[in-house]
Write a protein that binds this DNA or RNA. Structure first.
Lengths: 243, 243
DNA sequence: CGGTGTTTTGAAATGAGTCAACATACGTGG
DNA sequence: CCACGTATGTTGACTCATTTCAAAACACCG
């Protein structure tokens, strides 16, 4: 049974900007359905133009680009609350692909009604731009990360950032959280080779900082991890709108 | 004397999406003035919240992030037609800084009237989101670049992309174009050390491919450059809106 | 039980960073 | 007009993080 926007479990989270009843009603009308996909499903394909846009309700995915050489650059990890397909909505086509890593539940919107949203709901239109700006911000962060940090620093920072995001979503259980990816995925996200990623993970494990096994990430010494990641404890949470 | 939007020289370029007379009139009203800045001026500061937004009319600049270590990551080069400050407009504050490299002329908009734009001009609001999506796309490209390519490939690709952008803006004169930056700027943009950037530039020069001297970039063998950059000749130009 | 995908390990090769000096250009003030 | 200071570009030698290659161990599934 499909969730109604009114009882959307994500909306309750403080991570997301509050929305008036009237706005929620509009979103409800904007929503055309709900989609369940299996792990490995490609939601958006680079160069294509999806007729549908999504908001992730549940599950995890990946945004990535495929390069001429066949390599893959993972742009970021897709978590609940993320909006998928904005590029297809405003540009001619997607510039990256999006794939479901786990099973996912998605809110479906019709691309054609995006224009109605801009016309009738300036607040929501503003929020969409906001979302695009937040995406841009995250990409900028990763760029700085890959451009200037060593392997162990990159991995540590990726883990901390992931922890922050999952914490805000209530996905962290004690000192443990799900991370259902392959080492190859992390390597592709951080611009490292698989072998080096593996060895660095081993190093972090033996240092007693974090352990990533069987799709679960365990934090043994979070402070140390932050230190390696060159991040202090005070990180302002980024509030953002939910579409 | 300030340029009127109606005769805006940029608008004529095919790079930018066409705009109706009515839309141009609105933009004219949105525009509050024109700003001239000297080289080295900081237009936006990371963490601050500018009351003004700009569209570059003339000159070149840099967007960059400053890292805890003191390093700098150049996100991209700012050219005429680029919109500056969108992040400050929709998020609480800028996540990167913007600096004028040469003298610049900027169209000034009032941040407060951004909301009016969303309310009264859904087409323009749509364009703003479009711009944000284009920015995101470019950052994704650079990310893939830095994550997976060697020094010489990165430099070659940066030059080709720059050539494409400047060509669309009519800034290329024959096989030569202005590039008023320091080697350090390029190094910071591509995640390379200054020394390695210097040596790679020398290498490209000695191969007879490109020469970058005295703020001017000269192409001797453009095909070869594209080959090194792993780009074929057929690159679709990205049309985008001008605000 | 064999097949496929993932993780792990070791050894060798190298691209890129760091250090440290020198060269060049440009502007300012004496 | 020259001397000096600062910013940028150039070069060589050395080091090391990371990549690449190759193989083995492990896990899961039909």
């Amino acid at each position: 049974m499909a969730t109604s926007c009114r009882n959307c479990p994500l909306r309750k989270l403080s991570l997301f900007a509050p929305m008036s009843d009237h706005e929620v009603d509009f979103m409800q009308g904007f929503k055309t359905g709900e989609l369940q996909v299996d792990p490995g499903t490609t939601l958006m394909l680079e160069g294509s133009n999806s007729p549908q846009l999504y908001t992730v309700l549940d599950g995890m995915g990946l945004r990535y680009k495929t390069m001429a050489s066949g390599d893959r650059q993972v742009l970021n990890i897709v978590l609940p609350g993320d909006f998928v397909g904005l590029q297809a909505g405003v540009m001619k086509e997607m510039q990256h692909s999006v794939e479901a890593t786990t099973a996912m539940t998605l809110c479906v919107f019709d691309r054609k009604s995006l224009w109605a949203l801009f016309r009738d709901q300036p607040e929501r239109a503003f929020d969409l731009t906001w979302i695009a700006a937040v995406e841009e911000h995250f990409l900028g962060e990763v760029l700085a990360l890959i451009g200037h940090m060593s392997g162990i620093e990159r991995i540590a920072r990726a883990f901390v950032r992931l922890h922050d995001r999952c914490m805000a979503l209530g996905l962290v259980e004690g000192s443990e959280m799900p991370l259902p990816y392959r080492q190859q995925d992390l390597a592709d996200a951080l611009g490292l080779s698989l072998v080096h990623t593996n060895k660095t993970l081993k190093h972090l494990r033996e240092m007693g900082v974090v352990s990533w096994r069987n799709g679960r990430l365990r934090f043994f010494d979070y402070d140390k991890l932050c230190e390696i990641a060159d991040l202090d404890g005070a990180r302002a949470p980024v509030t953002r709108p939910l579409i």
